[in-house]
Simulated scan of single mutants.
Amino acid sequence: MKRLLVLLMVIVALSLFADTVLMWFTDGPDFDLITEQTNRFTKQTGEKVVILNLPYYLEYKPKLAAMAKAGSPPDVARETDLLPWIDYAIDLKPLVEKYTGMKFEEWLENVSFYKAGFKKLYEKYGKVIGIPYTSDAHAIFYNKEIFKKAGIEPPKDRPWTIDEWYAAMKKIKQSGAARYALVYDFSPYRFSNLMYVFGGGIWDR
């Protein structure tokens, strides 16, 4: 209760000095970019922006949840998972249409590279509560010593197939060359790469 009270006092204090509160977490060199964008926003609109840049899992998630439940959410927040906020966030469809000059369905089909996810959310809940901020590529690094210990020779003249990679992970585990054959963090947008590669999906229909 004390932590929630302190948090709300901080938000109230921030609101005295800013028109917009942006909650953010950074996992790379993107903080300079978002700072530049908010400065441009302030210059164009005259609205001051305070950025709360917090460690994602340790502070960001619990604070964002506490703020939303207390009825004092930030104006804008960066998130990798939209569903927990479906009841708290505003519908962005009118803003998409206003600022792109396109009908929402047209924007969804032709612009958004997250079309499938947005479409499912829109069909189920009748609103869209987020827009794509960024896109990146992921790569898997492997430990040569562990592969050697497990008797695995990576292909040198071509990419691995998924079946070969999966067989290699099983061999590492079975050989005892390492405790874990694969280590991934639990960010949904990272894990989803593997899920889709193996034919899975977030939506079951």
Rank of each mutant, 00 (worst) to 15 (best):
P188M: 08
L95V: 09
Y189D: 01
A181W: 00
I131S: 04
I172E: 03
P154G: 08
W160G: 05
G151K: 07
A150V: 05
K170T: 01
E145N: 15
K119I: 01
E145V: 14
Q174L: 00
K173E: 01
P154N: 10
Y166S: 05
L194M: 11
K127N: 01
R190S: 03
K119S: 13
R179S: 02
P188N: 06
D157Y: 05
T161F: 07
S112E: 03
F191W: 07
I140R: 02
K148C: 06
D136S: 14
A150N: 12
K148P: 04
K119A: 12
G117H: 09
L182K: 00
A137Y: 15
S187P: 00
S187L: 12
K156L: 07
G117L: 04
M195C: 04
K173C: 00
V96T: 07
P132C: 13
Y133R: 15
K171C: 00
K144M: 04
E164T: 06
G101C: 05
I129M: 11
V183I: 10
G101D: 13
I146E: 01
K156P: 00
K170M: 00
Y180F: 08
E153R: 14
I90R: 08
A177T: 10
A89W: 08
K124H: 02
S112G: 10
A178D: 13
L121T: 04
T134F: 13
A150T: 06
E123N: 08
E105Y: 07
I152S: 01
F147R: 05
E164R: 10
P188A: 10
A89F: 06
P159D: 06
P188W: 13
G101Q: 14
S112Y: 00
R190Y: 09
I162R: 14
I146Q: 00
L108Q: 11
V183D: 01
Y180A: 03
A137T: 14
D163Y: 13
M195P: 00
G176E: 03
I129R: 05
K144Q: 04
Y133H: 14
L92H: 03
L108I: 12
K173I: 00
F186I: 08
L194T: 01
I140V: 14
F141M: 10
P94W: 15
T161E: 11
K170D: 02
T100D: 12
L95Q: 13
K127T: 06
S135F: 02
D91P: 03
F104N: 11
D91R: 09
E153T: 15
V183M: 01
T100R: 10
Y189W: 10
K93E: 09
F104E: 13
W165V: 07
Y122T: 02
K98V: 07
K115A: 14
F113W: 05
S135H: 06
K149T: 07
E164M: 13
F113A: 14
